[in-house]
Design a binder for these strands. Structure first.
Lengths: 232, 232
DNA sequence: AAGTGGTCTAGACCACGGC
DNA sequence: CCGTGGTCTAGACCACTTC
């Protein structure tokens, strides 16, 4: 492990342990260099990328300080993670699980040739026993042949892909708009027909930048809202 | 201007001039150091922050390359900028312009004391002569006393704040959900009553991290969708 | 004045990619 | 193999903040 990463790890550990709280001063660059027996440039590099990750704030002439607690904006999280983060017990019901080969638009979004066989999964997502969303997701059937309905009912899709296929998911591009519930959706989500829904079409990419999952989600707008941070 | 910024500027200029296209190789770190008469570390610093800004991709053993064209994900843009980016002629109609002092929730979002006087502006936003959205925005009345209705009808709020008050807007936190149009909104946006709308509540911050503007926007979902990128 | 972060030098060795 | 980016050294001066 490079020296600068060791320095970062040491600082992160002190923050996680609660030894350093937001606003507290970190050791100066020169102190860090001395303590870790590295040159000033290396200590600076360590702080530089901690700063870019939002862990730390540097003020010239004054020092380096622990940044305010991270707000989880623009974070890609599985449904399970979202729910547990809000301390709601997550649950899912698989409505359907099957293979389709006539979804050229979805295939295109996954950068696959039009006729490719896809696994199509329809789920109702629940939190605290209330339905939150209706999600339809697609992955390549040939690539993820080990993905079965029982496996999905046990664990989350994210974790299956990460564990069984060694695919690290990295980011998602989302298209968000509003729509209103049709009769079936309304019944499944236990809302009045034509109630407003947040519609999110999501392409989830691996660390290599390859599209892996396509998700169409319909979210009850009385139970869900997006938090986004945009930059100028 | 620091040497590393000069190097960045030189590279950015070559990209903007079309001399370097996405995927093209940039000069190597050693070449840049020689050309600009700086040490290797300085050339590396220049490329390092260009990479973090997504301008450039570095591949060890291979070289540094112009990144694919920036997708405008998670970009804070004024309505005018959004429309011109889609080559639609932007227009706005100011429906109301006045001072309110009984909006404690809005004041709170702007980190002002509850009774603070606020300028409240209601506008219909149009693109290509079609109504797109209904926006209500709030700014501190005491701080932005030069903000008048005629000024707003001439230029955008963003540009007034940036030019007249030297405030650089930096980022926005948004809360997005779906709702349906009430009778007035439907009439103003020329959509059927109860049609689905995208509701965006936005707090826009200055570079100093101070909240400046609060905006409540109702967007026709048939004309507008959000593009978001989320990271794991 | 002392200490901090910001920039910079002129070298070095390593790990990786493509030929 | 050679060239690339990735890490690192042991110093230096500057601009800024704090006291």
């Amino acid at each position: 492990m490079p020296a600068y990463k060791k320095i970062q790890a040491a600082i992160l550990q002190r923050i996680e342990a609660g030894e350093l709280k937001p606003g507290d001063a970190i050791q100066s660059e020169r102190e860090l260099a001395k303590i870790h027996q590295v040159s000033l440039m290396t200590a600076r590099h360590a702080l530089g990328s901690l700063e870019r990750d939002g862990v730390v704030l540097r003020r010239r002439g004054s020092g380096t300080f622990v940044a305010p607690p991270k707000v989880h904006f623009n974070k890609l999280m599985s449904f399970t993670e979202q729910m547990t983060g809000r301390s709601l017990r997550p649950a899912s019901t698989v409505l359907s699980f099957g293979i389709v080969d006539e979804e050229p638009e979805v295939a295109a979004r996954l950068a696959l040739t039009p006729g490719t066989r896809l696994i199509r999964i329809e789920r109702v997502r629940q939190g605290a026993d209330e339905p939150f969303a209706l999600e339809t997701c697609y992955v390549s059937a040939d690539e993820f042949s080990k993905l079965t309905r029982p496996a999905l009912e046990r664990g989350s899709l994210f974790s299956i892909l990460e564990r069984e296929y060694d695919i690290e998911l990295s980011y998602a591009d989302e298209e968000v708009d509003a729509t209103s519930a049709d009769a079936t959706t309304a019944r499944l989500l236990r809302i009045p027909p034509a109630a407003p829904l947040l519609r999110i079409r999501q392409v989830i990419y691996s660390t290599k930048g390859r599209p892996i999952i396509y998700v169409l989600g319909l979210y009850r707008s009385d139970r869900h809202n997006l938090l986004i941070r945009r930059f100028r």
